[in-house]
Amino acid sequence: MRMVEVKQVSKSFGARNNLVRALNNISFTIDRGEFVGVMGPSGAGKTTLLNIMSTIDHPSVGRVYLAGQEITALPERDLATFRRENIGFIFQDFNLLPALSVSENLIMVLSMLKIPREEVQKRLAYYSEHLNLKQLLNRYPNELSIGQKQRVAAARALMTQPKILFADEPTGSLDSKSATELLQYLATINLENETTIMMVTHDAFTASYCNRIVFIKDGAFYSEVVRSGSRQQFFNQIIDMQAAIGGGKISDFRNRD
């Protein structure tokens, strides 16, 4: 089943005399249950692409379908419902609501969905158990470490049991131990719940947890690499592709695994 379809999307910024084309007629698809990474050099348009696919931004030209729904044509009031029911998002810099405790951050959206209290508590217990947040539920974001904040952000994104999870450099601010734990968890929910995940990263080690990598350069589709063997082999393939685009070293993998 096709979960994401990006059709000839272009995005331009700026005025007429200093126009910047961040995305240039890009098209690809993602099937249900895939764990797809988006890679490319700085300024390639990775975050812009993620923003458009996750309803944060609008394309200048083109269409995007999520779960069979054309999101680029949805009015704002329908988008809110669509986001609640279908999308989860993990940011690089956590973006927790500072006035709310960890548990309140986790259940806020569910309370808007009017899901029964028992179900909310059940999910809270499940995700806090799996992401090791049980001791942190009554704390506030400013009382958490960086790794703890990112785990809370991941739990919050998963609480609505989204059909597709978008992650923008989710390990960018984490130490290697916290990053590995988070990636392993994302891989687990991808396998167990068939949650479709699309992750933007510039790090080959992080990307090696995916099963397909879409490479973009200068806003256009460049190539893609599909995992067929071990993670080590997949990592090498990614490094080779990064080298072809420009950047990346084999020592990254050796140092971190």
Binding site: S54, A80, T81, F89, N95, L97, M108, V109, T160
Partner: peptide
């Protein structure tokens, strides 16, 4: 602003 953006992307409607 960041909080408002987070609420929007979390699925809260603009009226909420």
């Amino acid at each position: 602003r960041p909080e408002l953006g987070l609420m929007i992307i979390s699925g809260l409607s603009r009226s909420q």
